[in-house]
Each structure stands twice: as structure tokens, then as C-alpha cells.
């Protein structure tokens, strides 16, 4: 079941990063900018998730202080 969740995450990320990074007609190899975008896409998406959680916890802590 953890295996299934892992596969489903990889498919979702491949689809999302493909749409974001591969904008031209497919060629015999990725362009340098497509390759860089793909290599960074997963890490920045996971950074985004962590950043959002941190922001929500900051807001909760602030609301806690005010009450």
C-alpha cells in the first residue's frame, strides 16, 4: 500500500513537472533549460509543501499569542 502511494506520487509529479518544464515539441533530447527544470521540479515542489506547513504553523502560533 505504501508502494502504491509511492507510485501514485511519482506519476503525479512526472505529469506535473512534464507540463511545467516540457513546453516545446519533443526532440531527440531535452534542452538544457528543460533538463534543469525537470531536475529541480520535484525538490522545489517538496520545498513548497514544507514552506506551506511552516507558514500555517506560524499563523497558528500568532493566533495563539493573541488570544
Amino acid at each position: 500500500q505504501a508502494q502504491a502511494r509511492l507510485h501514485s506520487s511519482i506519476h503525479m509529479l512526472t505529469s506535473m513537472c512534464w507540463d511545467k518544464c516540457v513546453t516545446g515539441t519533443p526532440s531527440t533530447r531535452f534542452s538544457r533549460s528543460e533538463e534543469g527544470c525537470l531536475a529541480n521540479c520535484v525538490d522545489r515542489f517538496l520545498d513548497t509543501s514544507l514552506f506551506m506547513v511552516k507558514k500555517i504553523e506560524e499563523q497558528r502560533a500568532q493566533h495563539g499569542q493573541l488570544s
Binding site: M16, C17, K20, C21, S33, G36, C37, N40, C41, D43, R44, F45, D47, T48, S49, F51, M52, V53
Partner: peptide
């Protein structure tokens, strides 16, 4: 949270680089 991450990553991180 999943939807927020997906929508905001799409809008804010248009060219993923080596850090945010």
C-alpha cells in the same frame, strides 16, 4: 493542503531552479 500546494506551486514556481 494538497490542492493549495498544487495551485500555488503552479502559480508561483514557474521555472524551478536550485532553491526557492
Amino acid at each position: 493542503m494538497n490542492k493549495t500546494n498544487e495551485k500555488c506551486f503552479a502559480k508561483c514556481v514557474t521555472k524551478p531552479s536550485t532553491s526557492l
